[in-house]
């Protein structure tokens, strides 16, 4: 039992400690309304982080995810402009746009041999430009109630947990599907093998381009889903997605994912996203202003990489 405990990812311990600290400072978070609200707020970043994990495990980065969140919110609000009957096809159009962005990212990396950090940086700037041009720089249009349902609606009067936000259901369903694909299919094993050593994976028969396309599409589609949730509870703004790609990478790294590929689990990444959200909540309770959050996020990111490296060296890995 002891060796198992030692092998356990420390992110789960950190998460428990943070929850305890929050609960002591503010008992509100022990009530269903408190922790469900917390999970609702964490849902977009958890979904983004797991999507990002696909690209990280493949050996790359997806910096375009945040810009795609913004484009989703802006684009949906302009296309819909309050027309509830159009919600379903707009969601389908947005998911389709996500697929296109993911395929484009992957092909630029695979065919043109551009490092993913540059390819997706270019995509990020492009998508931001499209969002800005389309909206004219200020939020336009209006999201109808049935679109905002996913991010905002709370199912009430349930036994035991009393309330359940739809965003939490979306998070659980999406993350479960991505967990299954990563850890219970041949595809997931190919992906991690490719991130570990692309040349060896190629010589073992792994189709690198196809594997990479799926990884980037997972990241982009998760960004669109996160955008739909954020549009629901935060409403329309032109900076809704700014910096989210970095939060997603930070969450994955806190969860122990290896930058440049080959190691990282969905469960620990979700925990990493919750740690990040809990840290923000804690700072909020303690009354620190928003910029302090950024400082802390930066320090956590660096510490997580240092700690992971130290643990690996000690275990002789």
């Amino acid at each position: 039992m002891m060796p198992r405990l030692k092998q356990m990812n420390p992110v789960f311990l950190v998460l428990i400690l943070l929850f305890a600290a929050i609960a002591i400072l503010s008992p509100y978070f022990l009530q269903p309304a408190g922790y469900m609200n917390f999970l609702k707020r964490a849902a977009p970043i958890a979904i983004l982080a797991v999507g990002q994990l696909y690209v990280i495990n493949s050996g790359g980065f997806d910096l375009s995810a945040g810009a795609l969140v913004t484009l989703t919110v802006i684009g949906s609000s302009i296309l819909l402009d309050g027309d509830a009957s159009a919600t379903w096809w707009v969601i389908i159009v947005m998911l389709g746009a996500g697929v296109i962005v993911g395929v484009a990212n992957a092909l630029v990396v695979s065919w043109l041999k551009v490092p993913s950090i540059i390819a997706t940086l270019g995509m990020m700037i492009t998508l931001s430009g499209i969002a800005l041009t389309w909206s004219g720089g200020a939020p336009r249009g209006y999201l109808p109630e049935n679109f905002r349902f996913f991010g905002r609606y709370l199912i009430k009067d349930l036994p035991l947990i009393k309330i359940l936000p739809v965003a939490v259901i979306v998070m659980v369903v999406v993350c479960a599907a991505m967990w299954w694909l990563m850890h219970r299919t041949n595809y997931g094993k190919r992906l991690v093998a490719m991130g570990d050593n692309p040349k060896a994976a190629m010589l073992a028969g792994v189709p690198l381009t196809e594997t990479r396309i799926v990884a980037f599409v997972m990241s982009s589609v998760s960004a669109v889903i996160a955008g739909i949730l954020l549009g629901g509870f935060a409403g329309v703004s032109t900076d809704v997605g700014v910096g989210l790609e970095l939060q997603a990478i930070t969450a994955a790294v806190i969860g122990g994912a290896q930058l440049l590929g080959g190691r990282g689990t969905v469960g620990a990444t979700i925990a990493g996203a919750l740690v990040l959200q809990a840290m923000f909540t804690l700072l909020n309770i303690l009354g620190f202003p928003k910029p302090v959050r950024d400082v802390v996020q930066g320090l956590i990111l660096i510490s997580a990489v240092v700690i992971a490296g130290y643990r690996r060296r000690r275990s002789g890995g």
């Binding site: 991690v192 050593n197 060896a200 010589l203 080959g262």
Partner: peptide, 9 residues
């Protein structure tokens, strides 16, 4: 090492 193994797996 370079062409055969996925060292972390």
């Amino acid at each position: 090492k370079a062409e055969g193994l996925m060292l972390m797996q």
